[in-house]
Design a protein around this nucleic acid. Structure first.
Lengths: 118, 118
DNA sequence: TTGACATATTCCCATATAGACATACGATCG
DNA sequence: CGATCGTATGTCTATATGGGAATATGTCAA
C-alpha cells in the first residue's frame, strides 16, 4: 500500500506546508483564488489543486461570487488534530525532569511578575 | 516533485495513523519494539520502520537495554504542530453563527485577559 | 560454539502524490 | 456575438511511500 491519500483526513491534508499556508491566509477571512495565488506566489493550478484537497477534507468551503470563487476556512475540521495533540501538551508543559535549573535561569532572566503557581 | 518525505517534519510524520498510534502507546512510557508490536497488532518490520521515521524527526528516542531497544516519546517535537494549530482553536471555540459580532468584540477587548469563557 | 531471541534492513510492488504545462470551462464584458 | 477573466481539470514525470516477505544484525544463554 502506498501512503494514505492527502484527502484521507485533515492530518494528511495539512502535512503539506503549502496547504498550511493557504489555511493561514484564509484565517484572515474569505479570499478568492487569484488573491491566494498572489499572496502565496504559487502557480494558479497548484493553488486550485491544494484548495481541492482542503475542500475534500472539509477544511475549507467555497462560495461562488460572479466569476470568482471565494474560499473560506472551516476551522472545525482541524479539531481532530487539536484534540489529538492536546494529550501531549502537558508532556512538555510540565516536563520537570531537569527543569529546575532552567526554571531558575528563567526566573533570573525574565523576572516574571505573576508566576506564583509552583 | 513528489510529496514531501515522511521524515521531512513532524507534520508529515504524524500524518500516518499507525505512527500516531505508536506515539499514543509511548505516551504511557518507555516500551520495547515487540511490546509495541503486540499492542498495535502490526508486523514487526513495520513497527521498526515507523519507529525509524519517528526517530528521524525527533519524535521518539531510543535506549538500548540488553537485546531490547526501548523507545520513548519526545513530546517536544510535537510543539510546532501544537503551536500552529493553537491559532485556530479559538475559531471553533467561540464559533457563533454571527462571527462578525465576535470579531468586533475581540477587536475592542484586545486585552490579554481572556478568562471569561462562558 | 550453537541457538534462541529482539530488532533492523533490504527488495519488491502498487499507489499517489506535487509540480509544470496545456487546456477546458463558466461567467461577464464590450 | 467574441474576447477576456477567474478557475478547474487533465497529462506527464520524478519520487517516495506502506506493506509483505525474506534476511541481516546484534545480544544473550547453554
Amino acid at each position: 500500500m502506498a501512503r494514505a491519500a492527502t484527502t484521507a483526513d485533515a492530518f494528511n491534508a495539512i502535512a503539506e506546508a503549502r496547504r498550511r499556508q493557504i489555511l493561514d491566509a484564509l484565517a484572515g477571512g474569505e479570499r478568492g483564488v487569484n488573491d491566494l495565488v498572489a499572496s502565496l506566489d504559487l502557480a494558479q493550478p497548484l493553488v486550485s489543486k491544494h484548495l481541492r484537497v482542503l475542500r475534500e477534507v472539509g477544511l475549507v468551503e467555497v462560495r461562488e461570487d460572479g466569476r470568482q470563487r471565494l474560499y473560506r476556512l472551516n476551522a472545525e475540521s482541524l479539531k481532530p488534530i487539536s484534540d489529538w495533540i492536546k494529550n501531549y501538551e502537558r508532556l512538555w508543559t510540565q516536563r520537570l525532569d531537569r527543569l529546575d535549573a532552567v526554571l531558575q535561569e528563567l526566573r533570573e532572566t525574565e523576572h516574571a511578575d505573576d508566576s506564583r503557581n509552583e
